[in-house]
Design a protein around this nucleic acid. Structure first.
Lengths: 284, 284
DNA sequence: TCGTCGCTGGAATATTTATTCCATTTCTGG
DNA sequence: CCAGAAATGGAATAAATATTCCAGCGACGA
């Protein structure tokens, strides 16, 4: 019975395994479900890791891995792991193949896929470019400046607004005090008027620059509030009026500029600021 | 001397290792040369196999493998095998190249720069992974589904909210009718109740899933509104309740997951939908 | 031709890694 | 609320795997 079950159930290829896990997902006990999620989320780790390392990463006991495998009809964990390894083996030769497939698909007229590939390409390119061109010194100065601030004002409109929204989320998570402008119509000037020299601001805008971003950055600058700006060009009005500025040149596809590099930069900026404050707090 | 040699010689990445083996090839004793040839010829076997299995395949003794590794400056066979495994893990386009650049920068830099490089690396990796794993068919179906909708409801909270904010911007630009949820406190249910089968929705959420996103996606699903969801995992509640779903596995740095790939995917999705409508309008 | 030195095979050992087992906890149905 | 069943954690055990060691072999120089 048991052996028979195993014969019948244990899938021998990854897709079947994936399907089986997906089906069983709901009827799986807590820890086994945890393993299921981890396994499908981190197939490489499962393929290469040891039972102990995977168990630790998935926050279960090694024995749970074995039980999970047996539950699915495998002999043991090693048996299950074999499926994950085979998948990787098979896939390795296929990378070029896959790219070719994508290209072929594109040519044979799926415009949707062409667009997707275009944007992925643009994103990839933007990040590469940022890696190459980022000025480390400026990034450090910007971080230091923001780490010293009491409250950080976030200024971004239109296309750049998602970046400010992300910064707001991250700052909130990390307990850094911030104020997001542009949320309540018409009240921004009053809110910004309360900023002091001990605060700071992040202004984000790319050509064509949103007038209100520029205006508010200038207003804060006039109050003596140090402004860190993120923009696309040394001649940007934001570069002029900011105490410190960072350049991000996003590649575009079909006239739509990527946001990927700016997003990565801002994520790094927020974490770096939090980290610096933590260090500072620990020392002082 | 011996230890010093090891320090200097043992390469830490596959390309360097390959170069080293190629250089030494001629001055290597017979059996070790045999291993060298086999290793470069069957890197997958070396990555996955055990010392015994590889030894058998290469027609040498297991101890020869250890000697080979040590000869090259590694601690032992396992150490050498690690290089082969990492290569398979990281094998994605020009990713290795990028990482090399990043590593070089990181060494000479401060912690701030390390953080920046970490996020850029994660972004890069996420995008590469999306390129490899995206399901073109699903992307097309999602596009088609959204192109047919009258109004598109955008559902995303917390970390995913910036993505919805971007979609709102893009849809606005392209004159696609949309409704962004979560803006006015408490009125979402009433707003969503007005959706019909002729509309559609995009729901975005990553683990840990925001409860209100799930709830609203389910509410719309129950009304017969087709939902396209963007999530990180086949087990995501969003994958279950959606008519069509797209998987984005974002890499993380220091526990903060990148948004770059999701962003690129959504940009592509919005443009593809607009483009499809344009085509359709031209035809019909 | 002999002795030395490095290479090699293979067994012995050490180490790592998977698996099993059982006491304890957590569910489930009455 | 209680019994019984299922699931779980963690230590004990078994299995596998890598590494070390050494005797024998073969090349090379004296």
């Amino acid at each position: 019975m048991d052996a028979e079950d195993r014969m019948e159930r244990a899938p021998r290829d990854f897709e079947a395994l994936r399907g089986l896990i997906l089906n069983r997902r709901k009827e799986l006990p807590k820890r086994l479900a945890q393993v299921a999620v981890y396994a499908l989320d981190h197939p490489e780790e499962v393929a290469f890791g040891t039972a102990a390392s995977i168990a630790q990463a998935a926050d279960v006991q090694p024995s749970t891995l074995v039980r999970f495998a047996q539950h699915l009809g495998f002999d043991g964990f090693s048996d299950l792991q074999g499926i994950f390894r085979n998948r990787l083996k098979e896939r390795t030769g296929n990378y070029e193949e896959r790219l070719a497939t994508i290209r072929a698909t594109t040519k044979q007229g799926s415009e949707d896929i062409a667009i997707l590939n275009g944007f992925l390409g643009a994103a990839s390119q933007s990040i590469d470019k940022l890696v190459q061109t980022v000025n480390p010194l400026r990034f450090e100065r910007a971080t230091a400046l923001l780490a010293d601030a009491e409250t950080i004002y976030l200024i971004a409109r239109r296309r750049s607004y998602p970046i400010a929204a992300y910064l707001a989320y991250a700052f909130g998570k990390m307990k850094l005090r911030y104020v997001l402008t542009g949320s309540m119509a018409g009240l921004d000037p009053e809110m910004l008027a309360m900023a002091t020299e001990r605060d700071a601001a992040i202004a984000v805008s790319f050509s064509p620059y949103a007038p209100s971003t520029i205006e508010q950055a200038r207003q804060l600058g006039a109050l003596g509030v140090p402004v860190v700006s993120i923009t696309d060009n040394a001649f940007s009005p934001l570069a002029e009026c900011a105490e410190e500025w960072l350049e991000v040149a996003e590649a575009d596809f079909a006239g739509f500029r990527s946001l990927s590099a700016s997003m990565a930069l801002c994520m790094a900026l927020s974490v770096a600021v939090a980290e610096r404050r933590r260090r500072h707090a620990a020392q002082g």
